[in-house]
């Protein structure tokens, strides 16, 4: 069909050749073309953060980001790379252990936002954590256990980094 474009998209370290309509968002392409449904569709207008993924390490709302914009970039989703991502695993574990997961619909987005935050700021204070969550809605938890989970993940990852340097 003439309204389609051929693109190559790198997601979680794997390159995919796709034929998409140019107006498709990254969220739609991830979910519908690549069956990566861990990235959630909620408000569709960049308010809730449920669709947060990393593009070149930056947290973006995949619902507000055209798939075409991701050409030549490194896209990371909640599913993570096949070989694993220790930081992602640690953050997910902290979210579970600290009770930060209830219905779980906001969780993938929150986890990805945390991944980006801790990359830039390995030991954020509480204000920095809350600021990083300002584009994310959670209706279940009241955020308390999410903030605690991020603190826990930061402490664990910082501990690992310290040990690695020794």
């Amino acid at each position: 069909m003439t309204d389609r474009v051929e693109i190559s998209l790198q997601v979680n370290g794997v390159r995919h050749s796709l034929s998409i309509r140019p107006w498709r968002t990254l969220l739609e392409v991830l979910r519908e073309e690549l069956a990566l449904t861990g990235t959630k569709r909620s408000c569709g207008e960049g308010q809730c953060g449920a669709c947060t993924v990393l593009v070149d390490g930056n947290a973006v709302n995949a619902c507000m980001y055209l798939a075409l914009e991701a050409l030549g970039r490194d896209v990371r989703t909640i599913e993570g790379p096949a070989q694993g991502d220790a930081a992602l695993d640690a953050i997910q574990r902290s979210f579970v252990d600290k009770g930060a997961v209830q219905c779980g619909f906001c969780t993938p987005g929150m986890v990805m936002a945390t991944r980006a935050l801790l990359q830039d700021n390995p030991l954020p204070d509480e204000d920095a954590i809350r600021e990083a969550l300002v584009g994310h809605l959670c209706r279940c938890t009241g955020y308390v256990q999410i903030v605690e989970a991020i603190q826990d993940a930061a402490a664990k990852l910082a501990g690992c980094a310290e040990r690695a340097h020794e």
């Binding site: 909640i78 997910q92 574990r93 579970v96 779980g104």
Partner: peptide, 13 residues
């Protein structure tokens, strides 16, 4: 911790 917690946190639910 929730039984389904990791399933949800890793996007598999």
């Amino acid at each position: 911790p929730k039984k389904d917690g990791l399933h949800k946190a890793s996007g598999r639910a």
